[in-house]
Every structure is written in structure tokens, then in C-alpha cells.
Design a protein around this nucleic acid. Structure first.
Lengths: 341, 341
DNA sequence: CTGAAAGCGCTAACAA
DNA sequence: TTGTTAGCGCTTTCAG
């Protein structure tokens, strides 16, 4: 491939001058507009492309962001990744996706991480002990960390998530407005995220003066349909009677509830209103189509990566954004909710 | 970070010797076992990590694979990516995911690609004109290309896909064994992949001596539910009567058919058998759970990336695997298919 | 068996 | 306004 030296020779100028011009630092070298033009044109003609390796070598900065994640093949994760990719691309960074297990990171993976000298790291979808461990390690290595979605807020890191509390409230306000008073909650896996949502649910129930029925409040799983189904059945067959609405912490859970409810002979949504959480593509084809809460996954990934880039470029200037960044959710009304009959 | 030089000083040996040992080329330098041990131990104690940038600079090889893809947030794509990541990781390569649109790649994206001097490229989920264009470009740049899933076979590239023909046959053999003779086909977007499946469908129909009913054979979309629904309706309301089974080219299409069929008052699977294609996570929670064809997406991504690594490491030795690599599919029988009544 | 030295392509300080 | 120069950390010849 053509190098700056090649261009320098062709133009009849020193290689340093070419570096100034193509690096956008022409002012430093105070290169004349004419030579600048000639260099730029020659570079294009010759098909010059910067060499990120050489750049990284000499500057000591890698322009690489690493995202540590346990792949779950979910649309959510995919959207977060796409957002992070967009931010990285816009800033000429490379996003290195490093797949690890949810609970464990071995030596070889550490090596694969450090060998590329990442300028920052994102963390996504891991279990809490591993999150803590990685936070400590990255800190020790001097790599700034951003956590996305389900995670704790660490002292020296940024946590980006959607505004789960207001999301739950949006769902509940909608149901309450429809006249529901007997409302159940079906969570996902009982981690920080799902417990947060349960907490918001309880708070809103109390605020609205509605009954808090323990047997209608259950955690289950994000992805294991059997576990979700068991809990859905438990709610619908509760000895204290049936709720008229179920707030779910995921679209998956909501779809399972729909199915179980139909199996119980309930008419949907006349006999039971159900809300999801996420607005996944499938929520629109559920039967009936799901009323749900949209989460800004793409924006979350984008914001997280963007912050890392900023921090890498100017550590001083980086805003000390060390409380969680909450991105807004949105209520999507479809056909799985109806006025109480 | 600690460099080879630091280790060399500590051990009291030259930096070149350290390079030999840590690079696994101790034999080249004929380093004694004792110094070897000391170097390895010191490296570990000091927390040495190779610098991929320096390595790339001097060897002129990047250990980076680029995957050009239009993100569609599908589980399929996610699995392919995971497979490619696994292969890359195993070989100490970095997989750079480069998101582009399905139909167009601009100058800036080209730059972001070339700046990292990829040792190979994968292509995934793009429209055919863009595929052709990229193939030509990559060839000109001397970057070997591997295409995955929906793509043409190019002269100087490897195409990895699942064995779509045998997949369709597996579905049809199953239906035929259940006594079905009036079988319809609902495809996805009419691209290479979906047309291939339609072709296999027709072939098998003829082989089995079954009627080829044109109004029962339709292409639609992979993801647009309205378009799928229209075509499903067209099949079920065909003027020549209703089929007793529908072979779908995707699980999504199959789930839409299920819904439309129920809306038409059909009992499932008694009145209509439906097969999907992919074995997505959701196919197991469809109502009724889908009989479908499993595709080895992870393996496809893995094989594609693995081949690129092999080729990058030893261009001479690389097997001239220039006909499509077809990975086997598998029939998953669930409850959306039943004997003809 | 080990070391000295060249050089990969670039940035940035310093000279002219 | 431009050029010279010194590395960045490593691999790899070539000498000992």
C-alpha cells in the first residue's frame, strides 16, 4: 500500500509535511495552501489510506474500544451493539467485540483484550460477580469502563441504561387509566434490572392506592419459557383470585402470559390486559399485538461508546458523568390492553 | 505497559532473545531452556502483553478480519457473528464488524475498512449489486473474501451456507410422509436464497409426483409482516382451494401463516400443517410450536472466518475450497405438523 | 546459543 | 513555510 513517503516523493516535499497535511495538522507545520492541495490530491490519486497501526504505535493510543459481552443473540443486545458501532465508526474507532461467558473470564481472554491496548471498554449482559471483577481489573489497567443496561453503577465508570422506573410507570398509568385495580407483575431473571422494575411497580401501586398482592408479584426468567410459564400460571391461578392486568418486565414474558391466558380460556384483551417491556420486533406480531414500553437500545450503545471516545480523546475535558445516564422510554399502545369490563 | 525491552533488561539478555522466546520462535534463536524459562517467568511476573500494533507494523500483517454487514438485529446474523468471533478469537485475530447499508458503501466506510489493513473479509446480508461491487473492490485490494448465507458464489472467494436444498427436502419428506399432497410454499424476499428454496421445493414436488400449484407458491419478505400476511392470505384463499400444508422459507413466515390460519378458523395443526425454516428461539414458543429446519449459523460463521485465517496464515497451503461449503440442516419436529385428516 | 542493528509507517519536537 | 530527526515496540537478518 502507498505510504506518506511515496506521496512525499511524488509531490517533492518531506514526509513530515505530508503527515501534517493528511493528519489535519497543516496549521502546525503552516503548510501553504498550494502544497496542501497538491498533497491532498496526490494522496487521493494514489489511493492512500492511513495506517492505523503506525499511528497507534507512535501516539500510544489505539482507537480501539472493547465491548465485553456474553452473546445472547437477542435483538436488544444487537441494537446496543449497533449503536456502539455507529459511535465508534463516526469517530474512526474500531469496536472490538469480545465474547465471554456471563460469569467468567480466563487468562487467554484477558490477553486478547490487552494485546490491542483498548482506549476504553463497554460491559454488557454479565453476571454481577464478574462485573465487579472486571471493573476492578480494568481500573487497575487504567482502562475506563462504561456499563450498559443491566449493571451496577461503579464509582469510576459510566452506567447507561433506559429509564426503567418511568417505563414501568408509563405502563401502569396506562392500565390505571383503563380502570384496572388488580394488577400483577411478572419479572425476568431476578437481577438488578428486573428487581428495579419490580420496585418501581410496587412504588406506583402504593402511590395509586392499589392493593399489593404478593402472589401476583413474581420474578421468572428473561428467556427460559418454561420458567416464565410456571410463574404466569401461578399468577393466573392465585388463590386470591385473578388480576385483570399483568405488567411484564419483558416482551417475552408478556407473550408467554398471552399464551397461558388463552389456554385458561380467557379472552384477550377483554379478560386480561398485558403489557410488555422492550418493544421487540415480535411484540407487533404477538396475538394480540402487545402494548409495550420501547427502550432506546441503539441510543444506549451509542451514548456509551460516545462517552468512551470523548474520554479517550480528552481525558481532562470529559464530563464527570458519573451518575447513571437514563435514556427515556416510550409507551407503545397496541391491542393487548383494554378498559376493564 | 511493559515491553520486551523491559523484560530483556530484567533478565539480562537482549531484546531479540525475548522476542524469540515470547514469539514461540525460541528454536530460531536457539535459546537455551534455562533462559527460556527465565524469560517466560519474568514476562508473566511483569504482566507483559504482546503489542499487536508493533507486531503488525513489522510483519505487515494485521490479524484483523473485517465483516461487512447490514445489521438486521436477527438471531441468525447474531449467531453467524458469534461463530466468526469464536474462530477469530481462537486464532488471536480481531473481528472488525463494519456496519454498512444493504445497498451502498461510501468513501468514508471504505477508508475505515482499509485503514486497518484487514487480512480477510466476510460479507453478510447485502443486496446483490453491492455484493458484486464489493467483491470486485476487495479483489482489487488483494483482500480475500468469504460470503456467508445469502450470496452468490464468486470465482475467487469462498461461499459458506447451509444446505438449503436438503433442508427443504427434509421438510417436504416429513409432510409427504404424513400424507400431505396439497403443499404450498411461502418464501421470503425473492433473493438468491429464497429462490433457491423455491426451486428445491418445486423439484421435490415433481419428484414426488405432486401437483405444482402456482397460486400456492409465493415469495414475500423475510421481515415485513404485512407483506408476509398478504401472501399467506393469498395462499389460503386461493381460488383452486386450500393446501393442507405450507412449507415456509422462514420461521417468521411460518408464524404469520399460523396466525392467519387461525383467523380463518382453521384448527392447527389438524386443518393445516406448517413448517418453518431456521429453528429460531421463537419457533419453540409459537402456538403451536413449530416444526422447522435447523440451520447451523454459528458453524457457518465459524467456518467462514476459519478459512480466512488459514488463508491469511499460509496462502499457499489454503485449500482451494472454491465451491460452496454447504453445512447440514436438521429437521426439528414439533407440533405444527400433523398427519392429513 | 545470544546480541546488534535495521526498519515497518507514522507523529511530533526541533531546526532551518 | 518546510525539512530533519528521533523514536513507538517489535521481527528478523546477520554476526558473533
Amino acid at each position: 500500500m502507498v505510504t506518506m513517503g511515496d506521496i512525499a516523493i511524488k509531490v517533492g516535499v518531506s514526509q513530515a509535511t505530508v503527515s501534517y497535511v493528511l493528519g489535519g495538522r497543516a496549521a502546525r507545520g503552516k503548510v501553504s495552501p498550494e502544497t496542501r492541495q497538491r498533497i491532498v490530491k496526490t494522496a487521493r490519486d494514489m489511493g492512500y489510506q492511513r495506517n492505523q497501526f503506525a499511528r497507534a504505535m507512535v501516539t500510544g493510543k489505539s482507537r480501539i474500544l472493547t465491548i465485553l459481552t456474553a452473546p445472547d443473540h437477542s435483538e436488544n443486545q444487537s441494537r446496543i451493539l449497533a449503536g456502539a458501532h455507529e459511535a465508534a465508526n463516526q469517530n474512526d474507532y474500531l469496536l472490538k467485540v469480545q465474547h465471554i461467558s456471563t460469569s467468567f473470564m480466563d487468562e487467554a481472554t484477558v490477553a486478547r483484550l490487552l494485546e490491542w491496548r483498548p482506549a476504553g471498554a463497554l460491559m454488557l449482559g454479565l453476571e454481577e460477580p464478574l462485573q465487579d471483577e472486571l471493573y476492578a481489573k480494568l481500573n487497575a489497567w487504567g482502562i475506563f469502563l462504561t456499563t450498559v443496561d443491566n449493571a451496577r453503577q461503579y464509582e469510576h465508570s459510566l452506567h447507561v441504561t433506559s429509564d426503567n422506573e418511568s417505563g414501568i410507570w408509563q405502563a401502569m398509568d396506562h392500565l390505571i387509566a383503563l380502570g384496572h385495580r388488580r394488577i400483577a407483575f411478572l419479572g425476568g431473571r431476578p437481577n438488578i434490572l428486573s428487581l428495579d422494575r419490580e420496585h418501581s411497580f410496587r412504588t406506583r401501586l402504593v402511590e395509586a392506592g392499589l392493593p399489593v398482592v404478593e402472589s401476583w408479584i413474581r420474578q421468572s426468567s428473561w428467556s427460559n419459557f418454561e420458567v416464565i410459564a410456571e410463574n404466569a400460571v401461578a399468577i393466573l391461578e392465585s388463590s386470591v383470585g385473578r388480576p385483570t392486568a399483568v405488567v411484564c418486565a419483558s416482551d417475552t414474558a408478556a407473550m408467554v402470559v398471552l399464551r397461558i391466558a388463552r389456554a385458561h380460556g380467557l379472552r384477550l384483551p377483554a379478560d386480561l390486559s398485558v403489557t410488555g417491556f422492550t418493544n421487540s420486533t415480535l411484540s407487533a406480531v404477538a396475538d394480540p399485538p402487545l402494548t409495550t414500553i420501547e427502550q432506546p437500545f441503539h441510543e444506549m450503545g451509542y451514548a456509551a461508546a460516545m462517552y468512551l471516545v470523548q474520554r479517550a480523546e480528552s481525558p481532562e475535558t470529559a464530563e464527570p458523568l458519573l451518575s447513571p445516564l437514563l435514556l427515556p422510554t416510550r409507551l407503545i399502545i397496541r391491542e393487548s390492553t383494554a378498559p376493564i369490563s
